[in-house]
């Protein structure tokens, strides 16, 4: 029963998540573009904006729950952590982006990261739907369940946090442009300080996780291949990404880097994250076993 039911459950949950996120993203756009959204999401000023904000957040939570179910079903069916292929990693990536966005924006009332994160997760899931999704046994190098869970699990959280940080930075830059050009959109977006703070919180989750990805990856490489560092393109790109976020954290201590400069650094960091993630497809790398 498991061999048929669980993969099917994983697939249906995946589609439910896409539907929930699409609904959330539509709600978000409606909120941003409607006069209710311009009122800033304050209940006393615009009840419909408050309602749309809540609806969008619940859509994101529903999407997160469906994606969690999909990951659990797939993991149980495969009898290993569900991170064994590019397809599985994409699902986990979207899951982490949604989860981190919800964690860092706790207590915020305006439509903030949830909207940007649901759009980003939706894009990742659409990409995932184009990848081969067959459940195959892992190649010999991946046959280490504890380290697969630690190394790739940390990478999943780091990537999700980087996506959430990027969402905050994008909101910051959008709000900055809106304020300069006096767009009414600025009333629906979170204040600059809030976006900056939300991005920073996401980096606080992502930076140690990316460090853990490197540490557990090196440990695993030393067990599987005999060397903890081999200047493999994938691990080198991960190091470059980690260093960019290290620059952000150090530079942010200076007040001049809290703002647009920091936001642009986060955009660069996320571009590197995507480059590292997609690198499996074009790197001549020891990590080229993604099912593609």
């Amino acid at each position: 029963m498991n061999q048929e039911f669980l993969p099917a459950a994983a697939l249906y949950s995946f589609y439910v998540c896409i539907a929930a996120l699409a609904a959330g993203a539509l709600t978000g756009w409606a909120l941003l573009l409607s006069p209710a959204g311009w009122a800033g999401g304050r209940s006393e000023a615009a009840p419909s904006a408050e309602f749309a904000n809540r609806l969008g957040r619940w859509a994101l939570r529903a999407g997160l729950a469906a994606l969690s179910l999909s990951l659990v079903a797939r993991g149980v069916a495969a009898q290993r952590p569900p991170f064994g292929s590019q397809y599985e990693f994409a699902i986990a990536f979207a899951w982490a982006a949604l989860g981190v966005a919800l964690v860092v924006e706790r207590g915020e009332r305006r439509p903030g990261l949830w909207f940007a994160a649901s759009v980003a997760a939706l894009l990742v899931l659409v990409y995932a739907s184009t990848l081969p999704s067959a459940l195959l046994p892992p190649v010999p190098a991946l046959q280490n369940r504890p380290l697969l869970a630690l190394h790739v699990g940390a990478a999943v959280l780091a990537y999700g946090a980087n996506a959430a940080a990027f969402a905050g930075a994008a909101m910051y830059l959008l709000q900055r442009a809106a304020l300069r050009r006096r767009w009414r959109l600025s009333r629906a977006l979170p204040p600059l300080r809030t976006s900056d703070e939300l991005s920073y919180r996401a980096v606080m989750i992502g930076f140690p996780m990316l460090g853990a990805t490197l540490l557990f990856g090196s440990w695993w490489a030393s067990i599987a291949w005999g060397f903890y560092w081999n200047w493999d393109p994938k691990e080198t790109a991960t190091l470059a990404t980690w260093l960019v976020y290290g620059v952000y954290l150090h530079a942010r201590i200076r007040r001049s880097w809290q703002g647009p400069a920091g936001a642009w650094l986060l955009v660069l960091g996320f571009a590197l994250t995507l480059f590292t993630y997609a690198g499996n497809t074009f790197f001549n790398s020891l990590h080229s076993y993604s099912g593609l």
């Binding site: 080198t236 790109a237 470059a240 260093l243 960019v244 150090h250 200076r254 001549n284």
Partner: peptide
């Protein structure tokens, strides 16, 4: 100083990126 540290991390990041983009 933090400035030097951030600059060095940035340069090392750029070097690492070059090492992953170019064949080694």
């Amino acid at each position: 100083s933090i400035e030097l540290c951030a600059a060095l991390l940035g340069l090392l990041g750029a070097a690492s990126l070059a090492a992953s983009l170019l064949p080694q």
